[in-house]
Design a protein around this nucleic acid. Sequence first.
DNA 1: TTTATATTATACCAATCGGTATATTTTAAT
DNA 2: ATTAAAATATACCGATTGGTATAATATAAA
Lengths: 217, 217
Amino acid sequence: MINKFAFNIPIGIYLHWQLKITMTKAEKTRNFIVEKTAPIFNMKGYAGTSLNDITAATGLTKGSIYGNFANKDEVALAAFDYNFNSNVSKIEAEISKKDTTKEKLLAYISIYQSFLVGGISQGGCPILNTAIDADDTHPALREKVLKAVLSWKKSIIKLVEDGISNEEIKVGSNPEQIALTVIAMIEGGIMISRLTNKIENWNLIMDSLKKYINSLG
Amino acid sequence: MINKFAFNIPIGIYLHWQLKITMTKAEKTRNFIVEKTAPIFNMKGYAGTSLNDITAATGLTKGSIYGNFANKDEVALAAFDYNFNSNVSKIEAEISKKDTTKEKLLAYISIYQSFLVGGISQGGCPILNTAIDADDTHPALREKVLKAVLSWKKSIIKLVEDGISNEEIKVGSNPEQIALTVIAMIEGGIMISRLTNKIENWNLIMDSLKKYINSLG
DNA sequence: TTTATATTATACCAATCGGTATATTTTAAT
DNA sequence: ATTAAAATATACCGATTGGTATAATATAAA
């Protein structure tokens, strides 16, 4: 189906349009279900989100849900992907605006700050939430979060390595350690700030992180 | 009942024994239920832990559970208290062994490291787990975790303030900021290390935290 | 416009959910 | 040892769980 169109149309130009035109009703519904349920899974967790929650949020019936997904698992996995990919897009967009390594690292702070209020996916950081939720209970979901964290770590390592090449960051720095430290402080900061519901706590922790990042050079 | 004994017995000496002798069967059972279910609530969360899990873990029947607790909520709240108090005892014991402020702060690292393997309460840090679990779903439980974090923060602030008085920590340091930063790094570190299942990640993050603590003086 | 197919809704399933009334057993004071 | 009370077990409740068979409807190609 896709090939029929793609065969004689320049991919670079019409890829976006082509994807739209080949999106069937079911695919649209699938996306719709994921968009509507992603915040719920993020807030209530896997076990805490029922099929009743899913039908209520979408206005669809069970038949429609199960016509597009094999089971609750598939919806949850797709919801996590949606939440995570939304963040990745946002992060990449913000980071590409910055020039220096330090500025790029600092950009994470302002991006993840958005999770404290509303943000794309309500209920805090999907990585943190899903990691804790799925850790001991849901291997497939856990695997997805693990990949997400490793991918995040990898991105930061790349940034730091570039920074070392540019002589912006000290030679001898451990890029992996820096990546893990940044992630830990951000996720720990989100937990504390959401629990206490105090943005000042976030600011204090992020002030420490800023000092840490600035000390790398 | 307690007063009958306490009235003519020196409290300092017989308090422990007195508590034992006045503990009824039901109180023992209550403790037993809490001990057995605390790791389950910590691993599976509130929604993920069913009454069937509770009866299976204790070997008791529903009638017995509901004879000692009003509902699942009460068991969950008691389980969190148990998990948290176990930690507090452990922490106080370890910290009292150390002499300097920095050593006391560093002691948190080795204590929380125990959460990565087995520890008293399986499934990671109960504060982190319950904070994420109850955040958007269970106000009463959330309130308990909030108090736990604030109490933890308060303890660290006290340590730091003493350190400033002793001239062990720089004058002008922000005790609250230090407390929040330490907690964030530990909790973020636990999340990452448990997810990736790599103790090296914990070590790298804690190495950053050690540097941070040592830089305070 | 017809028609096959894809999609959605209805109605149902067994299993499990948290919770309870009541019967039985165990505890502990007399 | 007796006995009242406390604790536990049995058997059940309605509601909800995730999931499915089937009927009704909407889609889209011919």
